[in-house]
């Protein structure tokens, strides 16, 4: 467990491929992180191939009142909802929505926040000041409230949900990328790249960002976890994905009315959300340790 090998300059100079296999080696020794990774791969696999296993029409559209509100059994692993639809299939189709909104929103947040942060850190001065003061304003409002306000103003739809959650991520990524860029901006290899006449964009993307990718990857993983939780929360209070679409938070909200006699309807989607966030958190923590062994 004690990996106190400090990253020496010779390691830094090594090929990036070598760095990746080092990181992978350290990550694969972390059992918790690997468990998280495997769970996520399983989830993504199920989400992608949901149509092979289940019939969307049957799981999410058709009604089958004869089989309504059945507790989990061999025929219906997660039971059936108030319209007799199989909850397992609905949870699997729900994973498509929850995961894709989570990934897409964070990807947009990372892209916009990353560009702003990189510009801010690289150029400094007035531009840095303006971008960071705007970020301060966004960060002054708790993330969940910010998302609520944006969805409330734009109206509830999946696209607006993505926009709201992406905007909520932007200032966080801008700050992280900025400080990461600041930490390598004045190193010799960047100066060398500038000296041989490299263009600014080229320097930022080719030399600066690859060398401060660690904290960005870690934060991305943790933000996806937070965003998936926020999607579910927004759907739960009626500002996200609404009823017929099987999103996890919406499934949970739907189960709320039946909590007295059919508690599995609210329990199961919650457990799935929790396991997904847990897996992302474990992976994020593992990546943090693997990318920077000095932190251990």
């Amino acid at each position: 467990m004690t990996m106190n090998q400090s990253v020496t300059s010779s390691e830094n100079a090594g090929k990036r491929k070598g760095q990746f296999s080092d990181v992978w080696k350290r990550l694969s020794e972390n059992r918790a992180a690997m468990a998280g990774l495997f769970f996520l791969i399983f989830l993504i696999f199920m989400a992608v191939f949901a149509d092979v296993f289940f019939d969307y029409q049957k799981a999410c559209v058709d009604l089958n009142i004869a089989e309504r509100l059945q507790w989990p059994s061999r025929a219906h692993w997660f039971g059936t909802d108030e319209f007799g639809r199989d909850m397992f299939a609905r949870v699997v189709f729900g994973s498509r929505i929850s995961l894709s909104i989570g990934f897409i929103a964070v990807a947009f947040g990372l892209l916009i926040g990353g560009i702003l942060g990189a510009l801010s850190g690289y150029f400094g001065g007035a531009l840095d000041n303006i971008i960071m003061r705007i970020c301060d304003i966004f960060l002054a409002v708790p993330m969940m409230l910010m998302a609520i306000v944006i969805v409330a103003a734009l109206g509830t739809s999946i696209v607006n949900l993505v926009i709201a959650l992406a905007i909520a991520c932007v200032p966080i990524f801008a700050r992280i990328v900025r400080s990461a860029v600041l930490s390598v901006r004045d190193s010799e290899y960047v100066e060398a790249a500038r000296a041989v006449g490299g263009r600014t964009g080229h320097i930022i993307f080719r030399y600066i960002l690859p060398n401060c990718i660690g904290p960005i990857i870690v934060q991305t993983t943790l933000r996806i976890a937070a965003t998936i939780s926020n999607i579910a929360a927004l759907s739960f209070i009626g500002l996200g994905v609404s009823a017929p679409t099987p999103e996890w938070g919406a499934l949970l909200a739907g189960g709320r009315s039946f909590i007295r006699d059919s508690s599995y309807l609210a329990t199961i989607p919650g457990i799935v959300i929790m396991l997904t966030i847990l897996a992302l958190n474990l992976l994020g923590d593992g990546l943090r340790d693997a990318l920077d062994p000095r932190l251990r």
């Binding site: 209070i237 938070g249 949970l252 919650g270 396991l275």
Partner: peptide
């Protein structure tokens, strides 16, 4: 505490209601 960090607030709220109230 990892489980605690990963648990959605509103789900925990429902579970508490289920067990301790209902």
């Amino acid at each position: 505490s990892l489980i605690g960090v990963s648990m959605p607030i509103f789900w925990l709220a429902l579970m508490l209601i289920l067990v301790f109230s209902l």
